[in-house]
Nucleic acid binder design. Structure first.
Lengths: 199, 199
DNA sequence: GTCTATATGATGATAGAC
DNA sequence: GTCTATCATCATATAGAC
């Protein structure tokens, strides 16, 4: 066999990483399959041995991005308040918004996904719900009562803020929006150590 | 003159309304100029006497949507807490998310705008900042100290929630997300009547 | 101002050589 | 499995008749 299945798997991962990067940066419609493949050091025609369509690539790319996200890679086994605050700070930062670091597909593709087929939307929803559930589990460990609700609130605030910040353009407005959201989240979280929530 | 300038203005408004509707529903890239014109009861070729390019139509459409938004049309001259809560309820509702009522471009085009040229991004930013400022003015009238900050928090929460809800697909998840955000905003606002903010 | 017709280019996807 | 070459389609934008 001239090509090992490991080789195929590596090519596939290169395509997925390329797709995540380009889709987040320029949007799904504005990135062609040819560009994705070029960025992955392959040619246009080779694409279709790995994915049946561009839309299915999108669905897989969202999963790939989630798997390799900061949350899944740097989260300690038990999440402390300090660690969560660090994650929030990194997320609500100018380098994240301006793509100097890995992009979160939940924020960068939020409204884009709404226009795609059900497979893509389900992929997005799965990532969102898994993450919300992961955070809720940690919050429960801290004794938070309405953990699912609070987890959703934290996530929507983070994702919404980054989404909007990207569309504002100038970095001064972006920084103001990010700092404001960070302060609000931090004071929300500080309340947890002082008093029981949902009490 | 066979066509009055009023007629031209009406045609232009039909095109803008059509563009807002279709862009919010399907996304900028997935809507062609031909479709926009067809929806406005005109032909493709007539487009270019009204707008120089599709991108400039986008920038104008965002302004048009803001001008005809629920906020600009139904906001009473002096905003009461009750009226604000009603606006939030309408915004964070399933009919809004599923496009049974007029769509807010800030939420529906949030990540889409980030990939466009500076003219489009400036148009979006202008609408966001104007709205944030309008709300801040009302909050100041209520005696809120950190009015700008709170206004931004309310807006990002609303826009972020609707953006994400649209990508989740199933209406049960959407309703949960919307209700949760509404409750959080309402308790945030309830705090205003009991105690001074930023004190 | 609006129409029909068209120039020009890019895209998603396929066919077949290696 | 990856390549080159190609098909079929659809996009933006323009030209010219009415």
């Amino acid at each position: 066999m001239p090509y090992s299945s490991e080789h195929k798997s590596q090519s596939r991962n290169r395509i997925l990483a390329s797709a995540v990067d380009l889709f987040c940066r320029y949007g799904f419609d504005q990135v062609s399959i040819g560009e994705v493949m070029k960025h992955a050091k392959m040619t246009h025609g080779a694409f279709y041995t790995h994915f049946k369509s561009k839309s299915l690539l999108y669905a897989q790319a969202i999963q790939h991005a989630a798997k390799h996200s900061l949350w899944n890679k740097e989260k300690p086994s038990v999440l402390t308040l300090t660690a969560l605050k660090q994650l929030i700070s990194a997320y609500l930062s100018l380098p994240h918004v301006t793509q100097k670091q890995a992009s979160c597909p939940l924020a960068f593709l939020a409204t884009d996904v709404a226009h795609r087929d059900e497979v893509v939307r389900n992929s997005y929803a799965k990532v969102f719900q898994n993450l919300a559930q992961s955070i809720a589990v940690e919050l429960k460990n801290w004794g938070v009562k309405n953990a699912e609700s609070l987890s959703q609130q934290i996530l929507t605030s983070m994702i919404g803020t980054v989404s909007i910040a990207r569309s504002l353009g100038d970095e001064t407005s972006q920084q103001l929006l990010l700092d404001n959201a960070k302060n609000n989240l931090f004071s929300l979280l500080s309340g947890l150590s002082n008093k029981p929530v949902d009490g």
